[in-house]
Simulated scan of single mutants.
Amino acid sequence: MVLILLVGVLVLAVGGCVCVVWASRGGPRWVRGAARATLLAGEGVRRLPRNSGRNSSSGADGPDGD
């Protein structure tokens, strides 16, 4: 099930990239809309807070540097 979900996300990402390239070369209106949606989704993902994977409760990584 997870594999199908990942393949679906990959297909959407590749399709979005194709639409962005096609729209930059003057594609039809629906391609420009799909490209705009892809670029907006990319901006949204870029603005998400990142989790560095570190455990913030650890004393060694504390803000006072002890």
Results as ranks from 00 to 15, higher is better:
Met1Leu: 10
Val2Asp: 15
Leu3Glu: 15
Ile4Gln: 14
Leu5Thr: 11
Leu5His: 12
Leu5Glu: 14
Leu6Cys: 06
Val7Asp: 09
Val7Trp: 11
Gly8Ile: 08
Leu10Asn: 08
Val11Tyr: 13
Leu12Trp: 11
Leu12Arg: 06
Leu12Glu: 01
Ala13Gly: 00
Gly15Asn: 03
Gly16Met: 02
Cys17His: 04
Cys17Leu: 11
Val18Glu: 08
Val20His: 01
Val21Phe: 14
Trp22Cys: 09
Trp22Phe: 12
Ala23Thr: 03
Ala23Arg: 03
Gly26Val: 01
Gly27Asp: 08
Gly27Cys: 02
Gly27Tyr: 01
Pro28His: 08
Pro28Tyr: 06
Trp30Asp: 01
Val31Cys: 15
Val31Met: 15
Ala34Ile: 02
Ala37Met: 04
Ala37Thr: 01
Leu39Trp: 04
Ala41His: 01
Gly42Lys: 00
Gly42Ser: 04
Glu43Arg: 10
Gly44Glu: 04
Gly44Ala: 15
Arg46His: 07
Arg46Cys: 07
Arg47Asn: 08
Leu48Asn: 05
Pro49Ile: 01
Pro49Leu: 05
Pro49Lys: 08
Arg50Glu: 02
Arg50Ser: 05
Arg50His: 08
Ser52Ala: 10
Gly53Trp: 03
Arg54Met: 09
Ser57Arg: 12
Ala60Gln: 14
Asp61Lys: 09
Gly62Pro: 00
Gly62Asp: 15
Gly62Phe: 04
Asp64Ile: 03
Asp64Arg: 14
Gly65Ala: 10
Gly65Gln: 12
Asp66Pro: 07
